[in-house]
Design a protein around this nucleic acid. Sequence first.
DNA 1: CACGGCGAGGACTAAATCGTCCAGAAAAGT
DNA 2: ACTTTTCTGGACGATTTAGTCCTCGCCGTG
Lengths: 218, 218
Amino acid sequence: MGDEQGAAPTKQRRISQRGIATRERILDAANQLMFVRGVNATTLDDVREASQTSKSQLYHHFADKQDLVRALVKYRGALVLQREGGRLERLRSFSGLVRWRNALVQANSLNNGKYGCGLGSMAVELSDQDEQARSMLSETFAAWEKLISDGLHRMRDSGALRQDADPEKLATGLMAALQGGYLLANAAHNVAPMEVALDMALAHIKSFLSQPSGEPTR
Amino acid sequence: MGDEQGAAPTKQRRISQRGIATRERILDAANQLMFVRGVNATTLDDVREASQTSKSQLYHHFADKQDLVRALVKYRGALVLQREGGRLERLRSFSGLVRWRNALVQANSLNNGKYGCGLGSMAVELSDQDEQARSMLSETFAAWEKLISDGLHRMRDSGALRQDADPEKLATGLMAALQGGYLLANAAHNVAPMEVALDMALAHIKSFLSQPSGEPTR
DNA sequence: CACGGCGAGGACTAAATCGTCCAGAAAAGT
DNA sequence: ACTTTTCTGGACGATTTAGTCCTCGCCGTG
């Protein structure tokens, strides 16, 4: 499955500016609808209507629904990694981690915790029914964790974190707390569990700081 | 909300032993199928076939698919709370928590991390499309967390945990780590992330122990 | 022992939804 | 400007799946 894109040309074909825009419009509509309703509960007619396109365009740009969903997995993955990359690339201190936490919590609180994580929801819904999607999502999670662990590595190299801290495990734990927080917040329609979960993970990381800021680890 | 069962009698009717067994068979089949395929990807014919029943029986015992799903939410919730109640009711020490962790990890490793948590998966799939199911799931999570926090309270009362430990928040954090761990393990088809996540949560709880066992907090 | 009601079976209907097709419009190449 | 290719639109068909209905058999009860 070496396809670069969902719209991988079977044979070469000119791709007009308009065509690209249409494809983007479809993906964007699918992204929004499937975010709030879930993947399986969203029909192609929903997508068609919301994107102001037609059936033939859907099947022109995507082979079938599965193909669209896989393209969406890439699309969302790219969006998340871009957003998170911007936030995490300069991470060098614990306070930066706190700011990162606050940004995620604030964004989710706008929905009162609803909908959860765009990637996590898809992972749950698709892992059991589309091996390729699962695989891509798993890789995206790994890349996301790497953005975090890279930051933790920088903190360790600069001496902010102790040498016995394991950036990879800390990043995995933080990601799990984040995803579990999203899940519980979604079920409760309340961001509070997400805050508690992230604060736990942050406290755990804090316990590996070289010079305890604020109150000591004790 | 007020219904005792999915098969709430419209008017009184005798419920024979055979009828009860059939209903149970349906629920059990739905439970297994929807666990591995997901709720929305499982059809009623799948359930009918797996349970060795017929369409009319499905609609005799359950009003519609939504009703069946809601009954399944209760069913699974009861199973999980019963299982977890057995494991957690005597929780009084940190090592008990470790045993609890090990049991969950071992069970999930039998599937190589696949399928995730029966409750968590449903929460993600249903929260955005069935308010009543979401509400029940949220309550089930709360009850599950209470089993944990009760144990932590006992530990605090006995002096094992320090007074400044907050059992409720610790339980929420632990539950988030568990759910996030399930999710990542499912996406990766590998239990490792779940272990890391739970170990993080346990380390966090450990940092609230009165007498640090093994190596100290720092 | 007969009768009434409950449970079981499976064919049938209706609706939703995926996917196809063809004709017309727009854009690109010459 | 003209031809060819690509893009767009919506009607149409096929399939899946939820939900209905009618018949038969069994069990308990009067």
